[in-house]
Each structure stands twice: as C-alpha cells, then as structure tokens.
C-alpha cells in the first residue's frame, strides 16, 4: 500500500456554437442624443463578461471609447433574437452580430458628420476619442456628441444599425455522412500530475498545466479569469461532481452542497495557464469560444494520470475513491 504518482496528458478540439435548427444571434445598435451608443441584445451575461466584450467590439467598430457604449441584454421578450449564452457561442455569435450592427450605425454617423462638415463621408475617420475628422486634415473635425445632436434635432436621422449573424443548419450528406455541425474550433491541451493512494483510492491533483488556443483574447485578463476558473471546474468534473453517482439510478444523488462535492480553496492544484492566439477567420476580431472548452481537457488528463499512477482505467465520471478501489480489486483478481 502506497501513494503512487502519475502523469497524464490530453488534448481536445472544442466547437463554438451548435447545430440544431440553425444558430442565429441578432443585435441592434443605436445612438442616444448625446452620442453614446446602446447595444440591445438578448444574450445573457452570467458573469463571463459578455457586456464588457460586446462594449469593446461595438466601440472598436464604431470608433469610440468603450465607456461610450452601453449594453442592454437579457430580455427575450423585447430584445433582438439570440439563441442564448451556451455552447461557448456568446462572444462569437453575438460579437459578429454587433460588428454588423455597429458598421451600419457608423456609416450613418459618418454620413451625418459629412453633411455637417460639408465633405464626402468616405473622406472621414474616427479618432477613437469621440471625434470624427477629415483624413489628413484632423483640424477639420466634429465631436460625435454634436453629430448625434445634429442627427436627432436637425437631420431627422437615426444613427443605428441592425446586425444578424446566422450559422445555417447543416445536414449530413446522404452518401458520406459528412456535415459541418459547428464552426470555429478552439483547442486545448492539459498535463496533469496526480497522487493516488492505492489503499484509500483518494486522488490528489498536484499540478495542471494547460495550454489554450482561443483565437484571439479580446480581453486578456477576462480570458485568463475564465481559463483559471475553467481549469478548476475540469478537475471538479473529473474527481468530484455528479448529480447521479449511480447513473441511471438516482440513488445517492447530491441534494445540497454537503453532498454535491466540489474542490474547495484548500484542494487547489498548482495551475498554469498558457494562451495561444491564432485568430479565426470568421470570429469577431478573430475570437473563438473559450468558455466551456477550458473545463474539458483536465478530465481525460486526470483519468490518464490515474492510469499512469495505479494502472487502472476509470471510464466513468467522477473518478471517485470507490471506483478506483473497485478497479484495483478487479485488477488484483486478474
């Protein structure tokens, strides 16, 4: 009886979005009379930072500071259609819709500015600070505040835009079965080191080293935050969490946090995160969906590390002490 050490590696590809009846998200952008921009979405920010990312995407596209953009989300009664925040699709789908809507709004904004400055709209550029100026002659400029006032009170125009992003439903080819069920794959690889007590079956994850390829990190600190939390959740899925430990039998399913186990602050593995950026062709500014992807590679990596440590393959999650001890017993019985 001893504590045995093992190391496991796993790599994953993870799709962005899904393929049910088609995967649409729509967005509306309009300016207020003071030249702030409102983005209306039905997509939900549940803490992953969608509002911040959509504000950045809209601001970058229109050419204004991020704090000039307000995001209104999550009312599916009144907002433009969105399939929802899941399948790592939020940034990719809603981001593309926001870009399209913001481009249309920007065009109207430049047209109104062109009338005020008596120049051609195609000769105008934004300075990113809230002003529109003539290319090559920045002294000839107008603030976006004044452009909005002009549009609202003088020109009778709405500085607004509509964004529609749709991945159509993909059907399998009859002959080959080939289809394109999703877009824009993110990738990850994890190396996990564990200790397994072959007397108690207890697994301790010592280190997890993760590499994530996520297209482009539109907000690097928030990406890191997602990935660190996701890596923890991956270990939690591998070793702790289950609603039905004897699935499909519901017996002994957790009914509260005493029974539905997760690693606490005292159970943390030493965690490393490396981000690789290879911008995707169809992503907003190259982004892919890192959300769910980041909690996946730890699971097979831990399973492989357990195999490396004690020589048993656990193919049911979570990898509990009970399952390890049963497998060790079966192995000893030959």
């Amino acid at each position: 009886m001893a504590i045995r050490r093992g190391r496991g590696v796993a790599a994953i590809n993870y799709p962005t979005g899904m393929n049910l009846g088609g995967d649409p998200t729509q967005a509306l952008v309009h300016s207020t009379p003071t030249g702030n921009f409102m983005v209306t979405l039905s997509s939900v920010d549940l803490g992953q930072g969608m509002k911040q990312i959509m504000a950045q995407i809209c601001a970058e596209t229109i050419g204004v500071p991020t704090d000039r953009v307000v995001i209104d989300t999550a009312d599916t009664d009144t907002g433009p259609h969105c399939m929802g925040t899941f399948a790592s699709r939020g940034t990719h789908r809603a981001g593309n819709a926001v870009i399209q809507a913001a481009k249309e709004a920007r065009q109207v904004m430049l047209e109104v500015a062109a009338e005020e400055l008596e120049v051609n709209a195609s000769d105008l550029e934004t300075d990113g600070q809230g002003n529109i100026q003539v290319k090559g002659a920045p002294q000839k400029s107008i603030s976006i505040f004044d452009v909005a006032l002009s549009a609202h009170f003088k020109r009778g125009r709405s500085i607004s835009g509509r964004g529609m992003f749709l991945i159509p439903r993909s059907y399998p080819e009859k002959e080959t079965g080939a289809m394109k069920p999703s877009t824009c794959y993110a990738h990850a690889c994890t190396v996990a080191e564990v200790e397994v007590d072959d007397e108690t079956g207890e697994v301790t994850v010592l280190t997890v080293k993760n590499v994530f390829e996520i297209g482009r990190a539109l907000n690097p600190k928030m990406v890191e935050q997602q990935l660190v939390g996701g890596s923890w959740m991956g270990i939690s899925h591998a070793l702790y969490e289950t609603t039905e430990p004897y699935y499909p039998n519901r017996d002994h399913g957790g009914t509260d946090f005493n029974q539905y186990l997760m690693p606490g602050p005292g159970d943390l593995a030493q965690t490393e995160i490396t981000v690789l950026e290879r911008p995707s062709a169809d992503g907003p500014f190259g982004a892919k969906g890192p959300g769910e992807m980041c909690a996946n590679p730890q699971i097979p990596a831990v399973a492989n590390a357990v195999f490396d440590a004690v020589g048993v393959r656990i193919d049911t999650l979570p990898i509990t002490p009970e399952r390890i001890l049963r497998a060790l017993k079966a192995q000893a019985a030959g």
């Binding site: 923890w232 606490g264 943390l268």
Partner: peptide, 20 residues
C-alpha cells in the same frame, strides 16, 4: 490562513485562486 478563512464559502466561477 486565507485558505482556512475562505473554506466555508463556495465559489463556482473563479477556481478560488484569484480570490486568495
């Protein structure tokens, strides 16, 4: 000390390390 102090609080998002 910090880990001990936070051990009665559950977080689902961060993986605890940023909180520590």
């Amino acid at each position: 000390d910090v880990v001990e102090a936070l051990s009665g609080n559950i977080c689902r998002c961060t993986g605890y390390e940023p909180i520590i």
